Amino acid sequence: MDLPVMPPVKPMLAKSVSKIPPGMQYEAKWDGFRAIVHRDGDEVEIGSRTGKSLTRYFPELVTALKDNLPARCVVDGEIVIVHGGRLDFDRLTERIHPAQSRVDMLAQKTPAGFVAFDLLALGDQSLLDTPLAARRTALTDALSTARPPVHLAPATTDPALAQEWFERFEGAGLDGVIAKPLDLPYRPDARLMFKIKHERTADVVVAGFRFHKSGPIVGSLLLGLHDAHGALQHVGVCAAFPMKRRAELVEELAPLRMDDTTGHPWAAWAEEAAHESARLPGAQSRWTGKKDLSWVPLRPERVCEVAYDHLEGDRFRHTAQFRRWRPDREPQSCTYAQLEEVVGYDLAEVLNLKA
C-alpha cells in the first residue's frame, strides 16, 4: 500500500456542546464503529478509532469497499449494522470475535454497512489541509455511484434542518448531530468538531459500586431499574466524579455495604449462565478480557437521578451522568416505565436523504 496518507490514522473528534452552533456543516451522529478506510487497488485496510485493524472482522465490507470506493483513497466513516429499520450496536459488537469461522458466519447473518462522511486522500493527493467544504464536494463526487452497503452520509448547512434531524432521527438509532466548521482542515485525534447529543434523566437504584483503578475510592456506581416483574435489572453505570468526590462516596455509601452478595438481587453475577436470563453486572466478554469486574454490593435502598442519552435495548448505551441523590424516591418506584419511548424512524429514509 502506497498512499499519501498511510495507516494508522486516528480520526478527528468532536467535543460536546448543548446547542447546534450556526454557520457549519451538519450531519447525523452515527452509532457504530468509527473507521478510517485506506484503499490502494486490491489492498483495503479498515482502521479503528484507536488505530487497530478491523479488517478481518468485516470481510463483506472489504468486498463492498472495493466495489464502491475510488481505486486509491482514504475515507473516514462509520461501520454500522441495521436491524429492524434502526442501528443495532449490540449486533455490531458481536462481529469482533477471535474465531474466523464465526466471523464468516456473522458476515452472512448480520452484514455491516459503511457510512462515509469525510475524505482524507484521493489518488496521490492528501486532503488533510483542505477545508471541509472542499473535502465534502470531493467526497460527494467520489461516491456518486456508490451503492449499499456503502453510503454517503447526508449533510446540510441549514441549521433548521439539522435541528429537525436531531429530533427525528433518534428513532432510527442515531446519536444526535455533528457540526463541522466549513473551513476546518482534517486534524487526526483533535477535538475540533462539535457533537450535540440527546440527554434525558431517569431515577435509578444504586445497588453497588466498583473501586477506582487508582485505589480505594469509588470508580463507578452500578445502576438498576425494576422490570415489569419487579426484578432489579442492571442498566449501566455512572462514573464521572472528581477525585475528592470519589473518596467521599466511599464513606457516604459505607452504611449500605454488604459483606457479600448473599441476598442481593444480583447475587448470581459471577455465574455465566445467570447472564442469559437477567441483566447483571460483571459479564466477561471479549471486550473486557481479564479486566477485574468485581464490585461491592450495596443494599439497593438509595436512589439517584442520572442523565443519559439513549437506550440500547434495556440498558443505557453510554455511561450515565450523576445529577443528584433522590431521597424522596422509593427504590421500587424506579422502573423502566419512566423512560421515554422514542418514536420509530426507518434508517433507510435517513440514508436516502439528498440534502
Score class of each variant (00 low, 15 high):
269 W>S: 06
251 E>Y: 12
257 R>H: 13
233 Q>N: 07
230 G>W: 15
233 Q>F: 03
282 G>F: 09
267 A>V: 10
238 C>M: 05
265 P>C: 08
276 E>M: 14
256 L>V: 02
240 A>H: 15
254 A>S: 08
275 H>V: 07
295 W>T: 09
280 L>Y: 01
263 G>S: 06
228 A>N: 14
265 P>R: 05
298 L>I: 11
268 A>M: 06
239 A>C: 03
287 W>F: 01
283 A>R: 14
283 A>G: 02
260 D>G: 14
261 T>M: 03
246 R>C: 02
244 K>S: 15
264 H>R: 02
248 E>K: 04
299 R>L: 10
285 S>I: 13
263 G>W: 01
295 W>E: 06
270 A>M: 09
272 E>K: 12
256 L>K: 09
228 A>M: 09
255 P>W: 05
245 R>A: 03
253 L>S: 14
287 W>G: 01
270 A>R: 15
254 A>M: 11
247 A>L: 07
288 T>H: 06
281 P>S: 01
289 G>A: 09
228 A>F: 15
261 T>E: 13
272 E>Y: 06
233 Q>D: 00
263 G>N: 00
228 A>S: 11
247 A>W: 02
284 Q>P: 07
241 F>A: 07
293 L>P: 02
244 K>T: 05
297 P>T: 05
283 A>N: 13
281 P>N: 00
256 L>W: 12
279 R>L: 11
240 A>Q: 10
264 H>T: 02
247 A>E: 14
276 E>I: 10
291 K>F: 05
255 P>T: 12
292 D>C: 03
297 P>Y: 13
234 H>S: 02
284 Q>G: 10
236 G>Q: 06
240 A>M: 12
284 Q>V: 07
262 T>A: 15
294 S>Y: 03
269 W>I: 02
291 K>I: 01
262 T>I: 13
287 W>A: 15
255 P>R: 13
247 A>S: 12
237 V>A: 13
248 E>L: 09
235 V>S: 03
267 A>S: 10
230 G>C: 09
288 T>F: 00
293 L>T: 04
253 L>N: 09
264 H>K: 08
241 F>R: 05
255 P>M: 11
254 A>G: 09
255 P>Q: 15
264 H>D: 04
290 K>D: 00
298 L>C: 08
234 H>M: 08
250 V>M: 13
287 W>D: 08
270 A>Q: 14
287 W>L: 08
260 D>L: 14
259 D>M: 10
236 G>P: 07
260 D>W: 08
263 G>Y: 01
278 A>L: 05
288 T>C: 02
298 L>E: 07
271 E>P: 04
267 A>N: 00
227 D>C: 01
242 P>Q: 05
255 P>N: 04
237 V>T: 09
230 G>Y: 14
261 T>P: 04
240 A>V: 07
284 Q>R: 15
231 A>C: 00
232 L>G: 07
299 R>E: 12
290 K>N: 05
288 T>E: 01
281 P>A: 01
276 E>T: 14
280 L>V: 00
261 T>H: 12
253 L>I: 02
248 E>N: 12
293 L>E: 00
271 E>I: 08
273 A>R: 01
